[in-house]
């Protein structure tokens, strides 16, 4: 289903604008999640949604689809970043994921917590984005395989 690009000019033109806009908004939601609504989970899902939107409209050989495929190589990196921040706090002498003990010189406790929240949010966003894209890929690839069987 995905390998044939969608025909209409209106849809393709709208999508080419919307994909990058949604990605920009996802980055805003990610890095402003500490001041406004949003955060890692929503940002990851929005990045995945923009990539899947481009994948559905432009087909599997487009640049968006290749970006999505490259994103799949980062499976587990987000979770690793999350756990690494927790391990850093262990090295600094605190409990697991107690950001105020992270061994970063020149910052007070609140700033360390701020940085810890930001880093773990990036980790969550990466993890969620990769998971959503990989689910879409596993569904669509089995569609392609089913077609060659029939």
């Amino acid at each position: 289903m995905i390998e044939s690009p969608f025909g209409s000019v209106i849809v393709r033109r709208t999508a080419s604008l919307l994909v990058s806009l949604v990605q920009l908004f996802a980055l805003y939601v990610l890095f402003f999640g500490q001041y406004g609504p949003g955060g890692g989970f929503v940002a990851g899902v929005m990045i995945a949604a923009s990539l899947v939107f481009g994948l559905l409209v432009f087909g599997e050989n487009s640049a968006t689809a290749q970006r999505a495929t490259r994103l799949l190589a980062g499976d587990g990196v987000g979770l690793l970043l999350f756990v690494a921040v927790g391990g850093l706090c262990l090295i600094g002498g605190g409990e697991f994921l107690n950001y105020s003990q992270a061994p970063i010189p020149g910052l007070d406790s609140a700033a360390r917590r701020y940085l810890g929240i930001l880093l773990t949010q990036v980790g969550v966003a990466l993890d969620v984005a990769v998971a959503a894209v990989s689910i879409v890929y596993s569904l669509s690839r089995s569609v392609a395989a089913g077609k060659t069987d029939a």
Binding site: G39, F82, V124, V128
Partner: peptide, 29 residues
């Protein structure tokens, strides 16, 4: 004061209750 994060939802999810969020991330993965 603790986290310099005005959005309390984010600070609860990512700092006060961060172990829950870690396990949720594992579930998504």
């Amino acid at each position: 004061a603790d986290t310099r994060t005005p959005n309390v939802v984010t600070s609860v999810l990512m700092d006060y209750r961060v172990l829950d969020t870690l396990i949720e991330t594992v579930v998504v993965f």
